[in-house]
Design a protein around this nucleic acid. Structure first.
Length: 254
DNA sequence: ATGGCTAGTACAACTAGA
């Protein structure tokens, strides 16, 4: 089983990339973030034609998440039941006995801003909900754009980013508290190339200079982590014309 | 140098992303 996550930064613009990537990488499950589409505009027929079932929850202009699957999708949940949220940032479902949660964690904008406060309370509530979900689902994966670089090695310039948004102690502690639930960062189960990132700014040739952050993650429950044999970042779509600023992350479960 | 791109909304510049 291959599980993947990709922040597409507008599914309307990136649908051709999505279809091309799926044709080259026929993963079992793909979680999308930042679809930026209301549900009536979701490209259901195109995704079905590519061989995928899909569930989604979106809104105008911002946010929006979806789960694509080659297998049947059951027990769908939209948003965190413990957190009343106008913003469509979470969708979960059970696929082949695995609980799959697709999450688009708030950006936070600036440390101590209103958006940062929202990000932190969103993460606190996420932890509480995941704690419950883990009691009933031993095989659980939470995939998405966390908007948090876990460690300095996940940041191209740790000095410049020290204490900044995505790298602050509060955000890193919030991510660590998810890990304390028993979830593990599948990427770090394996030896990885140095300077591995999943996002690069559109500006100043950041991708060409590999000035990026690793903020897209696949966290696995202990049972799934034991079965995980690989986790890779696929930089290839970031080289395509008119790319998303994020690139896919793929975990392989045996 | 707090900018630099990109996408959405809507048709002129804004907000937002990270």
């Amino acid at each position: 089983m291959k599980l993947a996550t990709w922040n597409v930064n507008s599914l309307k613009v990136r649908l051709p990339h999505l279809l091309q990537w799926l044709a080259e990488n026929p993963v079992d499950v793909l979680c999308l973030q930042e679809t930026k589409l209301t549900d009536d505009k979701f490209p259901l027929a195109e995704i079905n034609a590519a061989g995928y079932n899909v569930v989604f929850t979106g809104q105008k202009t911002y946010n929006g998440v979806a789960i694509l699957s080659r297998h049947p999708i059951e027990d769908v949940v939209k948003n965190n039941p413990r957190f009343a949220d106008e913003q469509q940032r979470i969708i979960g479902a059970t696929i082949e006995g695995m609980r799959i949660i697709c999450a688009y964690v708030p950006n936070g904008q600036m440390v101590d801003s209103d958006k940062y406060v929202y990000k932190m309370s969103w993460l606190t509530s996420l932890r509480e909900w995941l704690c419950e979900e883990l009691r009933t689902h031993e095989q659980l994966a939470i995939l998405g754009d966390y908007n948090i670089a876990p460690e300095d090695r996940d940041v191209h310039d740790p000095v410049a980013w020290a204490g900044q948004i995505h790298c602050s102690d509060g955000e890193r502690a919030a991510l660590a508290s998810l890990v304390e639930l028993g979830l593990c960062d599948s990427f770090r189960l394996f030896e990885q190339p140095e300077k591995s990132y999943s996002w690069w700014d559109y500006r100043q040739l950041a991708f060409r200079r590999n000035r990026g952050l690793r903020i897209d993650h696949i966290l696995l429950s202990p049972k799934l982590a034991k079965r995980c044999v690989a986790c890779v970042i696929d930089r290839n779509p970031r080289t395509w014309e008119q790319p998303s600023d994020h690139t896919p992350v793929v975990a392989t479960i045996e």
